[in-house]
Structures are given as C-alpha cells and as structure tokens.
C-alpha cells in the first residue's frame, strides 16, 4: 500500500527516511559489484509481479512478494525494494519523494527480517521445510508491512486510527494468499533451481 504525499506528519516522514537511509547503506555495503545486476533484475521482478492481480473471492489484490525477495536477497532486498518504489514515484507518481522513505521502509524492513531470520532455515533443502519457510516469509512479509503502514498512519494523528485499522484489515486476506503463493513458489524453485536458494545461504 502506497501512502500518498501530504498525509503523514513530519516526524513520521523523517523517521521513515532515517530507517531507509540506514537500510540502504547497510544493503549497498553488502552487495558485491558482481551482484548489482542480480539485485536490479530481482527488483524488476518485484515491480512486474506487483502488476499481477490475484483473485480473492469477488475482489482481487496484487502480489507484494516482499517476503520472497527478502528470502532470496537478504539485506540487499532493501535497495532492491527502494529502487522499485522510487521508480513508481518518479515514473507514475505513485507515492512521492518525501513519503518514499516511509513507503520503502514499510515494505523493505519485513523483507530484510525474513531474509535474516528465515533464510538460514532453508539450509535443510527438504521440500516440506522449504515450503513452510517460504509460506512463513510470504505471510510475515505482508503482515509486518501492513502493521508498519498502519503504525505510520496511526502515529501521524488520532484521526488516522480508523484508516489504519482499515488498512490492517485489508491486508488480512492478502497475507493468507501471499503466504500460500510464496510457499508454492519457493517449493517450485527448490525443485527447478535448488542452487538459487542454496547459493544465497551465506
């Protein structure tokens, strides 16, 4: 969920940029020059996948996939997600420049967390375990993003509390579908390209 420009209060916006700057510098430090194309192309997949709309009953939601990107890239997911969101702001004016810090942090922090906490569990390489870890990453990625988005709204003023609750509620079906989908994607990757998940087990 992109929050548009002009909604959040100044301290929240500043906090968002502080987190984003820290995440970016840590992430960029972790990327060796030969991995730059990989980060850029995974960011592109993240961008393209967000155009895929998955039906949930009568409505549809677009994929988020921040948990999956985090699982594959680890800390480097921060710059990847930041770039994808920044381009949405520059090319399509979704979100904005000042609110970009908050939008990138709400998406990328859960991704990095999934990478740090869940990626070591992929080591076993057994399909049920890998799928379970993938499912957890997909579910947690959206859950935490929803919580952070809601928190940044709620921290901006009492009047936003209802909006924050609605945002959180809207994330519930998405996180279930995302968890299911990510579990199957990771299961698929573990069979088709086991090296993809294994090689990144640094």
């Amino acid at each position: 969920m992109h929050i548009s420009e002009g909604v959040l209060s100044i301290p929240v916006l500043a906090g968002g940029w502080a987190v984003a700057a820290t995440g970016l510098s840590l992430g960029l430090k972790k990327i060796e020059p030969e991995r730059l194309p990989e980060v850029a192309l995974l960011a592109a997949v993240f961008f393209v996948a967000s155009l895929i709309h998955v039906p949930i009953g009568p409505v549809s939601a677009h994929l988020v996939l921040n948990g999956l990107i985090g699982l594959i890239l680890g800390v480097a997911a921060f710059p990847a997600i930041f770039v994808a969101l920044a381009l949405q702001a520059v090319l399509f004016q979704f979100g904005g420049l000042v609110v970009l810090g908050v939008n990138a942090s709400t998406m990328a922090l859960p991704a990095v967390l999934c990478g740090v906490v869940l990626r070591p569990l992929l080591a076993s390489g057994r399909r049920p375990v890998v799928m379970l870890v993938g499912g957890a990453a997909g579910f947690l990625g959206v859950l935490l993003s929803g919580c952070l988005t809601a928190a940044s709204l709620a921290l901006s003023g009492e009047a936003f509390v209802t909006t924050a609750q609605a945002v959180l509620l809207a994330h519930v079906p998405v996180m279930i579908v995302e968890g299911l989908l990510t579990a199957m994607t990771v299961g698929f990757l573990s069979q088709v390209q086991p090296a993809l998940l294994a090689a990144r087990r640094s």
Partner: peptide, 21 residues
C-alpha cells in the same frame, strides 16, 4: 490458480537470475 501464479513468479525469478548472470 494460486499454484499457477506461484509457478509463474518462480519462472520469472529463475529466468531473471540466469539473465543477471
């Protein structure tokens, strides 16, 4: 449907990593 989309995303990821190399 979800499995089909999951495999679609998986294919995109696998191909883009090959391409990155």
């Amino acid at each position: 449907t979800y499995r089909s989309y999951a495999y679609l995303v998986g294919m995109l990821l696998a191909r883009s990593l090959d391409r990155a190399g």
